[in-house]
C-alpha cells in the first residue's frame, strides 16, 4: 500500500475552484516533487493533506489516505493526533514560521514523540543533527538571534524530530540566500535518506526536482498536468506545458541558456490543447 494517496481531490474558495481533481501518490522513502508556477495550487495541496487549510477554503471532493486511513473521514481530534504523530511540514518562510516569543527548544520539544525521556537532551541532539553550531546555546535562545538559514535548519529538525511518516517541504529554500540554498537542500535529502520518510517536495524549480526527486507532478491552475518518474520527465517531457517549463529552466549542463518565462497565453493554449486530445 502507498504511504499517501490523494484521489481526485478538489478544493473550493467560496465557490471558485482552487484544486480540480488532483491525484497524487507518494510511496514510503520516496521523494515526490510537485512543481508549478506560483499560484498553481501547490501549497494548497500540501495544506489540504495536512488539514490546515485557510478557513474559507474547503474540500469539495475526493479523498486523502495516509497508510490506508481516510483522513477526511476522521474526527478533528483524531485527525490532529494523527497529524502530530505521522506528518510534518517544512515551511516556506523560516522568518515567520517560528514563534518570536518562544525559545527554539520549547518549539522543538513539543514535537518530540510521546515518551521521550530527556527532552532537553533530545532537542540538542536534533539541533546537532541539522548541524547548528553551539546547539546548547541556540536551544535556549529566541528565534530572532538566528539567521534565516539557521532558522530553517531548526525547522527541519522540528519536522524530523517528531519521527513522522510523511514530511511536506513547501518551497523550503525559496526565501533563503542563494548561498545557503544548496546546504539546506542537501540537509533535507540527507535527513530523508536517514529516516526513510516519504517526502513531498514542493518547488517551482525543475532544476531542484531533477537533482533530488524520484517522481514529479507538474501542476498548473489547480490541475495536475503531468505525472512521471523524474528522469522520464526531464528527458522526455510528455506534455507541452512541461516542455515549456523545462525549456525555461536553466540546466546545469547548459549554463546561461533559457530563463525566458513562458507566456501565459501560450500556456493556456497548451493546456486547452491537452484537454482536447
Amino acid at each position: 500500500m502507498s504511504l499517501l494517496q490523494v484521489d481526485s481531490l478538489s478544493l473550493g474558495l467560496r465557490g471558485t475552484p482552487v484544486l480540480r481533481s488532483v491525484n497524487l501518490t507518494i510511496e514510503a522513502s520516496e521523494i515526490a516533487g510537485v512543481v508549478g508556477e506560483s499560484g498553481a495550487g501547490k501549497s494548497m495541496l500540501g495544506k489540504a493533506i495536512l488539514g490546515v487549510l485557510p478557513r474559507d477554503v474547503t474540500v469539495t471532493g475526493g479523498a486523502i489516505r495516509l497508510g490506508g486511513t481516510d483522513l477526511l473521514a476522521l474526527r478533528p481530534r483524531a485527525r490532529r493526533a494523527l497529524l502530530k504523530r505521522d506528518m510534518a511540514l517544512i515551511p516556506q518562510d523560516p522568518l515567520s514560521a517560528l514563534n518570536p516569543c518562544r525559545t527554539i527548544s520549547a518549539q522543538l520539544a513539543e514535537v518530540l514523540p510521546r515518551g521521550t525521556v530527556d527532552a532537553k537532551l533530545e532537542v540538542i541532539r536534533w539541533l546537532d543533527a541539522v548541524r547548528i553550531p553551539s546547539a546548547t546555546k541556540v536551544a535556549k535562545s529566541f528565534p530572532h538571534v538566528l539567521s534565516g538559514g539557521m532558522r530553517q535548519r531548526a525547522l527541519i529538525a522540528a519536522a524530523f524530530a517528531s519521527r513522522p511518516k510523511l514530511v511536506i517541504a513547501d518551497e523550503p529554500t525559496t526565501a533563503l540566500d542563494v548561498t545557503v540554498q544548496k546546504d539546506i537542500l542537501n540537509l533535507i535529502r540527507e535527513m530523508q535518506r536517514e529516516t526513510g520518510v516519504g517526502l513531498m517536495f514542493v518547488t517551482h524549480d525543475l532544476c531542484v526536482v531533477a537533482k533530488i526527486c524520484h517522481s514529479v507532478t507538474v501542476m498548473h491552475g489547480g490541475r495536475v498536468i503531468e505525472q512521471a518518474a523524474c528522469t522520464d520527465l526531464i528527458n522526455r517531457p510528455g506534455h507541452a506545458y512541461s516542455q515549456a517549463l523545462l525549456a525555461a529552466t536553466p540546466r546545469p549542463d547548459q549554463a546561461g541558456q533559457g530563463l525566458e518565462p513562458v507566456p501565459t497565453a501560450l500556456i493556456e493554449r497548451m493546456i486547452a490543447g491537452a484537454g482536447d486530445g
Partner: peptide, 14 residues
C-alpha cells in the same frame, strides 16, 4: 494569521 500558527497546527495543537 502568521505562519507559526500554521506550523503549530501541523504539530496537532487544538
Amino acid at each position: 494569521a502568521q505562519d507559526y500558527v500554521m506550523l503549530a497546527q501541523t504539530k496537532g495543537k487544538s
